[in-house]
């Protein structure tokens, strides 16, 4: 993962070892799932401005969640793409460059805790008749949100495989409708954004806000 990280510790200069590993810009790197977290102002049109950074490179956004954050007036995006780290870094820098974007992080699945929520609508009579279905639902951590005479809506949260598994389970029992939310993710190694925002509000933000991947303050955090 760190093969194309650039080591510019002064020691590497004297050793004569070129500090440019992965000189093809990591083009041979394997694609994997990355979650990009973006803190932004709440601004009309910003979603489009961010989306076109992906579409201009013909990159599909696998999942997109945007919602107000814990901080008044600040929105948080979670964007999931399947790409190489090199490409994701470039995308992230181009997103962070947008005027109304405060900060961008990108993380592999190892770095985050994430969930997706899914809703399943199934006929109530089948659920009522077949005890096995109820058991299956319980085993999969689903809970009933609404029970009506004609249908019941179950909800579950989990990773993609888990919510997918329940579709397969319910399909034989007349699954009527299914919907899944985008991924929401918490970065394991993050102190949140409250303190940073106060720094951003200053004309000259302090050094700790200007994190920098080259200084290895957090492997996948970069910003100016």
């Amino acid at each position: 993962m760190d093969s194309n990280k650039i080591n510019i510790a002064p020691a590497s200069l004297s050793s004569g070892e070129p500090a440019r590993a992965g000189t093809d810009g990591g083009r041979d790197e394997a694609k994997q799932e990355f979650t990009i977290t973006v803190y932004t102002e709440n601004q009309i049109g910003l979603l489009n401005r961010i989306a076109i950074i992906f579409t201009r490179r013909k990159i599909n956004i696998h999942s997109l969640n945007t919602s107000p954050s814990e901080i008044e007036s600040i929105h948080r995006f979670n964007i999931v793409v399947q790409e190489t780290e090199d490409v994701v870094r470039k995308l992230s820098r181009q997103i962070e460059k947008q005027v109304e974007v405060l900060k961008v992080y990108f993380n592999t699945n190892d770095d985050i805790i994430w969930q997706e929520m899914a809703l399943y609508k199934v006929p109530t009579d089948i659920i009522a008749e077949k005890a096995s279905v109820e058991r299956l639902l319980r085993e999969n951590g689903a809970r009933a949100v609404v029970i009506r005479k004609d249908y019941t809506v179950f909800e579950t949260t989990g990773h993609r495989e888990e919510t997918d598994a329940l579709i397969r389970i319910l399909q034989p029992f007349g699954l009527i409708e299914f919907v899944r939310s985008a991924r929401v993710a918490i970065i394991k190694n993050s102190d949140g954004f409250n303190r940073k925002l106060r720094e951003f509000e200053k004309a000259e933000p302090g050094e700790d806000v200007n994190e920098n991947e080259y200084l290895n303050k957090g492997q996948r955090i970069f910003t100016m």
């Binding site: 194309n4 650039i6 510019i8 070129p18 500090a19 440019r20 992965g22 000189t23 093809d24 810009g25 870094r89 470039k90 820098r93 181009q94 962070e96 460059k97 080259y214 970069f222 910003t223 100016m224």
Partner: peptide, 13 residues
Amino acid sequence: PSEIDKNVQTTVP
């Protein structure tokens, strides 16, 4: 900063 490493890998940015 988005120009750094965009096309050519940098030794010292």
